[in-house]
Computed example of a mutant assay.
Amino acid sequence: MKVQFEQLDKRFGEVARGDEYLECLYDGGRWLEGPVYSPAWRCLLFSDIPNDRVLRWDEVSGDVTVFRQPAGNSNGHTLDGQGRLISCEQGHRRVTRTEFDGSITVLASHLDGQQLNSPNDVVVKRDGSIWFTDPPYGITSNYEGRAAEQEIDGCHVYRISPDGELTVVADDFVRPNGLAFSLDESQLYVVDTPERHIRRFDVKDDGRLSGGEVFAPCEAGMFDGIRLDAVGRIWAAAHDGVHCFDPDGTLLGKVLFPDVVSNLCFGGPKRNRLFVTATTSVYSWLLTTDGAPQPYDHR
């Protein structure tokens, strides 16, 4: 499939370069989400939420196999500083870590005795803290989780400290979703999906947030997952494709897709391959822009 762009700012010309074609890696999902690239395993892991499985695309063979099923209706994933998989399990209403031996450690499931809604997306800061969003998508029906009553009053952004303490860092969202740190981790971008915008917070040394102004509105449906590239541009999943924003908030342009885009990540040996989950399919685009360094990236 030929790559289609919508350039809205001349600076997008410096970004929208690479392969002429998008590569479809897989097209057998029901609602795909949460892509994360593992350099150690040379693979892409991604969630097929309604089918309750995590799939694995092998970079060497190109094969797609089941990594985990059942998977707690997992949604977002990331890797910690040691390369261990951190997962948001909507069905089990918890955040987990997969250890090197394959065992699973529960990192967060309750706040003050009340069960979380359904953790959605997650990022890891270089200090080892884990930050995640908790909308109720996994408990509103049995489609993406298990229908249940919401125990916590509200949908919040959370931080798990390096010593395991769970705290609310933002409590004024309708349904927080994708999130990502700026390159120096002094700012945190968080999507509020029903509000159709991305907000930006200042991050204090002790983990508290301040600010929270609207960084960018969505021009096509709603935002979902977000990631940053190596110069700090924000790439956001939207209904018509992937939107690329300059750190000053300008929408530079879009990479258009035939399906509603849910999430994305950068990966590959050089971190210059954009992986995109879009409804039932996973796409890949090799480009001249690199993704932002990650806590597990020791290059």
Rank of each mutant, 00 (worst) to 15 (best):
S38V: 07
A40K: 10
S74Q: 09
T133P: 00
P39H: 07
R53N: 04
F46A: 01
V15Y: 05
V123C: 08
L85C: 09
S47G: 06
V60E: 14
F132S: 00
G34M: 03
N120G: 13
E59G: 14
T133L: 02
I49M: 09
E23W: 06
I139E: 01
T78P: 01
Y21F: 13
E14R: 12
V36Y: 00
A71Q: 02
I139G: 02
G128A: 10
S87K: 01
F67H: 03
D58I: 11
R56W: 07
I86M: 09
P39V: 05
G13D: 15
D63L: 12
V54R: 11
P135D: 04
N73M: 13
W57M: 05
V64S: 03
G76M: 10
G13I: 15
V64D: 01
H92T: 13
C88G: 05
L44R: 00
V106W: 06
F67Q: 01
E89D: 15
G29D: 03
G76Y: 07
E59W: 13
V36M: 02
Y26K: 04
S109V: 05
S38P: 10
L107D: 01
D127E: 07
C43H: 07
V106Y: 10
E99Y: 11
K125T: 11
Q90H: 15
S87I: 04
E89W: 07
D48V: 05
G102N: 10
D101A: 12
S47I: 02
T65C: 09
Y26E: 02
V66I: 12
R93A: 07
L22E: 00
R84G: 08
G128D: 10
N120K: 14
P119W: 03
T133Q: 03
S38W: 03
I104P: 00
D134P: 14
V54I: 15
V66K: 05
E89G: 11
D134C: 08
N51F: 12
N75I: 09
D80M: 11
Q82Y: 14
G113E: 01
P119F: 02
V106M: 12
L22N: 00
S118K: 09
L79Q: 04
T133W: 01
Q90Y: 09
R53H: 06
E14N: 14
G113N: 05
D112F: 06
D101N: 12
D127K: 13
A16W: 05
E33R: 00
D58T: 12
K125I: 06
R17P: 07
G72Q: 02
E89L: 15
V106E: 14
D112M: 04
P70I: 04
V66W: 03
E20K: 08
T98P: 02
E59L: 15
R97H: 08
S61K: 09
A108N: 02
D127V: 10
R126G: 06
N117F: 03
P50D: 04
L85Y: 08
L79I: 12
C24Q: 13
P39C: 03
I130C: 03
H92M: 15
G72F: 02
V66M: 07
D27Y: 08
R93H: 11
L32V: 11
N75K: 06
S129R: 05
L116K: 07
D80P: 08
S129Y: 02
C24S: 08
T98E: 15
F132V: 04
E89S: 13
A71L: 03
R126V: 09
G81M: 06
R42N: 13
L45S: 04
F46G: 00
T78V: 11
S61L: 12
L55D: 02
R68I: 08
F132M: 01
